[in-house]
Design a protein around this nucleic acid. Structure first.
Lengths: 194, 194
DNA sequence: GCACGAGGGTAGACAGCGTCTACGGTCGCT
DNA sequence: AGCGACCGTAGACGCTGTCTACCCTCGTGC
């Protein structure tokens, strides 16, 4: 998906992905990526004029990975939309927890050039999957589907972020994020079916 | 509140706060703060052994500021808990939008030492205000108050963050965050009273 | 009245960073 | 054979955070 090209460009992105997964977002320096790719520190410049460009490409891989996981989940799980939404949410939170560095990078808009690489648009298919499912379970009195989906996404995202920060467990006394997730889903979509 | 001490320590924090508000989180370097405080680059070290310590102190001011704003809102607004919750949420989102750099810094747990400065605990009073209000409007079938409050906070936080990133407006087609906010409040707390 | 020690700020060094620029080598094409 | 385009190297620059040695200025004990 772009990262496994044989050229240096692909190797750089792959090294960046590997680095952010292993060491976190702050470790992803241009020079370290170049080192891991076995080239001089000036080499990346041919493909990525600035550090931001390279980070954006790495983040793009992150979105692609997350999207692929969600699509895989959709393939595995029951077609009932409510079930699918629950599974999607779980996948989102699991991704954030398992790849925290990547997840952080993906939403560090101060580090990324969302315009040049159409990064925001890269996250759109993901939102579309969510929005389609939301539209199917939406009740007549609910907000419009796009709004409902946006609010739900924001809730998922907030849980992922605050949970990682440690504030949420401290404040709520919870030991896992599943309780919070269930509460969020029921709040937005109504009580879970029996 | 700690930042207006006359000593160098207070001046450093004040300079940091000013800098993050004006230029954003990435501009808050140790040396730049020292420069603005009119001291040499080594001076901060007496009070803040590392950059992280200084940033944490700045973020602490941010939490203090936000808490003060919320408390002011609580003083100004009608005692009806639902109204208060709406106002609190609005204050939260306004703060995030108006002081984006500070808001980012406050939740950059990778940059902060939440342990040493009890930073997480600093955000706790804020959560308590929210939790108390939530407890008052909670319906019998809702999740426990702490969980409900946590989920709602996460929703607010997610809206603030995703909105700032630009993804949410793009995905939902909304032009302001108020629609999203109302949807979130109604989802967690039930339909708004007439 | 004076030495002394501690607190607090200065100044220089170091390695690492992103960026810029000049250079070289290695192709394929005419 | 010669020539360009492509692609990577290497060194410099100014910036960063951190470390260390130094010094100046007090307050205190004698």
């Amino acid at each position: 998906m772009g990262a496994d090209e044989t050229g240096l460009r692909g190797r750089l992105v792959a090294a960046g992905v590997d680095l952010v997964l292993r060491e976190g977002q702050s470790a992803v320096s241009l020079r370290e990526i170049a080192r891991r790719a076995g080239v001089s520190h000036g080499a990346p410049r041919r493909y990525f004029p600035t550090h931001v460009d390279l980070l954006s490409a790495v983040a793009r891989e992150g979105f692609a990975d997350l999207t692929a996981r969600v699509e895989q989940t959709m393939r595995d799980v029951d077609p009932d939309p409510r079930t699918r939404l629950t599974a999607l949410a779980r996948t989102y939170l699991d991704f954030a927890a398992a790849h925290r560095g990547m997840f952080e990078l993906m939403f560090r808009h101060d580090l990324l050039d969302s315009g040049r690489l159409r990064l925001r648009e890269t996250s759109l298919p993901l939102f579309t999957v969510l929005a389609d499912l939301v539209a199917q379970v939406r009740r007549p009195t609910d907000a419009p589907a796009a709004v409902l989906a946006g609010a739900l996404w924001a809730n998922l995202h907030g849980i992922a972020q605050l949970w990682a920060w440690g504030s949420l467990p401290l404040a709520t006394g919870a030991t896992d994020d599943d309780t919070l997730l269930r509460a969020a889903l029921e709040a937005h979509l109504g009580p879970a079916p029996a």
